[in-house]
Simulated scan of single mutants.
Amino acid sequence: MKEIRPGRFLRFAGVALLALGFAANAAAQGHVHPHGSAKPAKPELGTSAAFAPDGSLYAVSKGGQHVLLYRSTDEGATWSEPATVNAAPEAISADGDNRPKLAFARDGGVLVSWTRPLAKPYTGEIRFARSDDGRQFGEPTTVHRDRREITHRFETLAVTGSGQVLVAWIDKRDLETAQADEREYRGAAVYAALSDDGGRTFRPEVKVADHSCECCRIAIANDTDGLPLVLWRHVFEPNERDHALAKIGPDGAAGEVTRATFDRWRIDACPHHGPSLAVAPEGTRHAVWFNEKDGEARVFYGRLAGGRVEGQRAIGGDRAAHADIGASGSRIAIVWKEFDGERTRLRGELSDDGGRHFRAIELASTAGASDQPRVLRRGDELFAFWRTGMEGMKGYELK
């Protein structure tokens, strides 16, 4: 199996494929690889950020064998000395699609999740810690009851409209069982666990769906009823890597799994390039994702409309990568990074009319390595957050 990178693709032997000419910007673009088989590029810059109820900006990242929590009161211009999330050192994943995550409980508690790699290659555990004050964290716990040395990785953390805490991740327990029984099984699975007490304890995990892609981030956004929608790259028969959507009920059970995108990318590999989802107040589901369509691999934007995609179009150029999306009222923001041959640029598009029209914006650039950008919301305001190896962690108001 060959490595795949965003860019110009060719087709051969019925299998979609191979990006050309990207060795020079491998670190800037990030790795895309078959079945999660390549280790993340160094330095590991995977960072998550979120605005706290008091309006300050928090960020979590890896520092050696610790997860570190930073706080900024000036929208990312300067940062406090970090608090240590896990007192006892342990292995931590911190690449773009598998980085520490951050959220805030309804009672103000700071919630942090991450993947702890285990000794066997491509295995891991989903770890979680809570702080009441943002400085002292309780002892980390493992979210799932299944403790086999298998894949539990690529977790996503969210707080639902009712205040429940949801963690979802990629899990290979069903693949392991199928292989032991000599049965065929495509991809991995998505599992999730809910907490009813602000992250102090979790219910037993529940399977959301079989046949997810093996190493793409999962997107979670609350629907208009407050229940979380989970969007992930799925392996549809015979081997189409499109996206699927499901809603998680207050009991933790997943509703019907529906197909969300229809690009029909046939490839036996994982692009390590997950989607992003934002739900507008009137219920429109705005999404960005990476796929191959009509022989060309691009980042796309579209509105997911129950069995079809409305307004689908390519975002940025043929080297655009790792887009994120956010919504505030009728304002929609998309950000992504894009290598221009010399520098990696943070670019974006803004809509003031619910996604009918967008205007382009240029935000920043770097000559070195960079993480994936994020869209953050503070009240009615939208921000971009981007960490680079040379410039550090920065916030950019989107207006």
Rank of each mutant, 00 (worst) to 15 (best):
F12P: 02
G14R: 08
L18P: 13
L18C: 13
G21Q: 07
A23K: 13
A26N: 08
G30L: 12
H33D: 14
H33P: 00
P34Q: 11
H35G: 13
P40M: 07
F51P: 03
G55L: 01
G55H: 06
S56G: 09
S61W: 01
G64E: 04
H66C: 09
T78H: 12
E81I: 15
P82S: 06
A88K: 10
E90I: 11
G96H: 14
G109Q: 06
V112K: 02
S113K: 00
R127A: 04
D133W: 10
F137Q: 04
G138E: 03
G138R: 00
G138I: 00
E139Y: 00
P140D: 10
T142V: 07
V143F: 00
H152E: 14
R153G: 07
L157D: 02
Q164Y: 04
W169N: 01
E176C: 11
D181T: 10
E182M: 06
E184L: 08
Y185H: 09
G187R: 11
Y191L: 10
A193E: 00
D196V: 05
D196S: 13
V206M: 06
K207L: 09
V208Y: 02
H211A: 14
C215P: 07
I220C: 06
A221H: 00
N222G: 05
D223G: 11
D225E: 07
L227D: 12
P228H: 01
R241Q: 05
P250E: 14
G252N: 03
A260E: 06
T261N: 04
R266G: 10
I267E: 05
D268Q: 05
C270L: 04
H273M: 08
G274T: 03
P275C: 08
S276D: 10
S276V: 08
V279Q: 05
D294Q: 12
R298E: 12
L304H: 12
A314V: 11
G316M: 12
A321D: 11
D324S: 11
G326T: 04
A333L: 10
I334G: 06
I334H: 04
R345K: 15
L346H: 01
E349L: 15
S351P: 02
S351M: 10
A364W: 03
Q372R: 14
P373H: 04
P373R: 01
R377V: 13
R377F: 08
E381R: 09
L382R: 06
A384N: 03
F385G: 03
M390H: 13
G392D: 11
